[in-house]
């Protein structure tokens, strides 16, 4: 196996994809060529080091995603609970006022129909 043929197998070797025969052939080539062996070791060390790239500090995207979805859907999704409570209070007030007006109207009607205003 030439040095270039061996180099072409570096990745497959690191991926564990070489069959026993090719692996043995690569090993014997590396054993007879110190420079190539050093190159192989550097290649292996580099990809052991890429583990560092997989470690990133924690991230919390949820609040941002919810905020954007709420804004873009016009409040349809992830509705603001505080605003929702305020909204409920507001609608409750409207119901109270409407009920009071209705009761007053009914009382006035009874008063009118019983001739209270006729005198």
């Amino acid at each position: 196996m030439t040095a270039d043929e061996a180099r072409a197998l570096f990745d497959a070797s690191l991926d564990g994809e070489l069959d026993a025969e090719l692996r043995a052939e690569l090993e014997s080539t590396l054993a007879t060529d110190d420079e190539l062996r050093a190159e192989y070791e550097r290649h292996r060390a580099l990809f052991a080091a890429t583990v560092a790239l997989g470690r990133v500090s924690e991230v919390d995207l949820l609040a941002g995603v919810q905020h954007k979805l709420r804004a873009r859907s016009g409040g349809k999704f992830y509705r603001d609970r505080f605003a929702e409570r305020r909204g409920q209070r507001a609608s409750f007030g409207v119901v109270i006022v409407a009920s009071a007006v209705l009761v007053i109207c009914v009382l006035l009607w009874f008063a009118y129909s019983s001739g209270l205003f006729a005198r």
């Binding site: 949820l62 995603v65 999704f77």
Partner: peptide, 23 residues
């Protein structure tokens, strides 16, 4: 469009997505 399920989904995948994009 189950909001609770979507929140759980974001929490499950956020790290993988973020890591890919960061790199």
């Amino acid at each position: 469009r189950d909001e609770a399920a979507f929140s759980a989904f974001v929490l499950k995948y956020q790290e993988r997505v973020f890591r890919l994009l960061l790199r």
